[in-house]
Design a binder for these strands. Structure first.
Length: 253
DNA sequence: CCAGACGTTGTT
DNA sequence: GTCTGG
DNA sequence: CCAGACGTTGTT
DNA sequence: GTCTGG
C-alpha cells in the first residue's frame, strides 16, 4: 500500500523540475504555491501538490483520499489507494482513470512492516539519488458537499477556474488516489504492495494519453529491481502529528 | 425491475 | 473492536 | 498509513 | 453515476 510519503522540495524547484520532465511550461494554480508547506510525513486527508493536465499542465493542491462525485458524504469514502490491476474497471475509479489521471510528486515513501509486533516504519528512496523526485501515478475527482448541507464555507475557498471549468474550481475538494502494484525488491521484504512510480518516459502517456494506452502502460510497467533503497526510520513517523526533517534519518534496527 | 453496493489495506 | 482525524 | 477516540445530558 | 445481485 502507500499510506504515507514525504515531499519537501521547494515549490519553485518542483515547478522547474516538472517543466523539464514534461518539456512544457507548467503553472501553479490558485496561488497553490503560497499555501504549500513541505512535509516529512504526508498523510491522508491533507492538501498536497499534484500535477494534472488539461489544455496545459498545472500544479494544484489536492486532498489525498478520493471521494466519488456521487457520494452524499465524505464520511464513507476516502480512497487513498487504487489497485493498478483494476483501476480501469472498478466503478468508483473508472471515470477518473479515463479522464482524470495525475502525477503525485514524492521524495520517498513509507511502508510499515507486515510482521507481528509493533508497527515498524521503513522509508524507500531511489538508491542512486535519495532526494530525487518520484512521480506516483494517481487519479482524481472533484467532490462537493450537497447544497442541502449548510456550511459550505468550511469547504473550498479557492478561486474560480474560469477559463476551462475543469475540476479545481473548489480548491480543497479535488481529491486524489495513489495507484498501487505488487511490490518488488526491496519493498517486498517489508510489504506486498507499493505505489506505482512512473518513469519520465511514461509521464506523457499517463497524463494525456488515451485510456487504452494508459492501461497498456500499467501492464508493461516495470520497476528495475533494487532501483530503490529501504531503510528503517524512527517510530515517531507513526504519529501523523510528527513532521520534521529528523524523521528522514536512518535508525538502527 | 429495484435495492444496494461501489474501495484498499490487512487480518481472519 | 471499529470509527475518525490527521 | 497510524493514533486515538469511542457518550449523553444539560449548561455555558 | 453505474454496476451487481436478487
Amino acid at each position: 500500500m502507500c499510506g504515507r510519503y514525504t515531499f519537501f522540495m521547494r515549490g519553485r524547484d518542483l515547478e522547474d523540475r516538472v517543466e523539464e520532465d514534461l518539456e512544457e511550461t507548467v503553472d501553479w494554480r490558485d496561488s497553490a504555491l503560497d499555501r504549500y508547506q513541505p512535509s516529512y510525513n504526508v498523510e491522508p486527508s491533507t492538501l498536497n501538490p499534484v500535477v494534472d493536465a488539461g489544455s496545459q499542465a498545472k500544479i494544484t493542491l489536492q486532498r489525498w483520499g478520493l471521494v466519488p462525485h456521487w457520494a452524499d458524504s465524505d464520511d464513507d469514502w476516502n480512497l487513498i489507494n487504487a489497485r493498478s490491476e483494476s483501476v480501469d474497471d472498478k466503478p468508483v475509479f473508472r471515470e477518473a482513470f479515463e479522464s482524470r489521471r495525475c502525477l503525485v510528486p514524492a521524495q520517498g515513501f513509507y511502508e510499515w512492516s507486515d510482521r507481528e509486533g509493533p508497527s515498524i516504519p521503513y522509508r524507500f528512496v531511489p538508491r542512486d539519488d535519495p532526494d530525487d523526485l518520484l512521480y506516483l501515478a494517481g487519479v482524481y475527482e472533484s467532490w462537493e458537499p450537497s447544497t442541502s448541507q449548510s456550511d459550505l464555507s468550511s469547504y473550498g475557498g479557492g478561486t474560480d477556474d474560469a477559463d476551462t471549468g475543469e475540476a479545481g474550481a473548489w480548491f480543497g475538494d479535488v481529491r486524489y488516489s495513489i495507484l498501487t502494484e505488487p511490490a518488488t525488491r526491496p519493498v517486498e521484504e517489508v510489504h506486498d504492495r507499493m505505489p506505482v512510480m512512473l518513469t519520465s518516459h511514461e509521464l506523457p502517456t499517463w497524463l494525456t494519453g488515451e485510456p487504452k494506452d494508459a492501461r497498456k502502460l500499467l501492464d508493461n510497467h516495470v520497476v528495475p529491481e533494487d532501483y530503490l533503497r529501504g531503510y528503517r526510520v524512527s517510530r515517531e513517523v507513526n504519529s501523523p502529528a510528527n513532521d520534521r526533517p529528523e524523521l528522514l534519518a536512518e535508525v538502527s534496527g
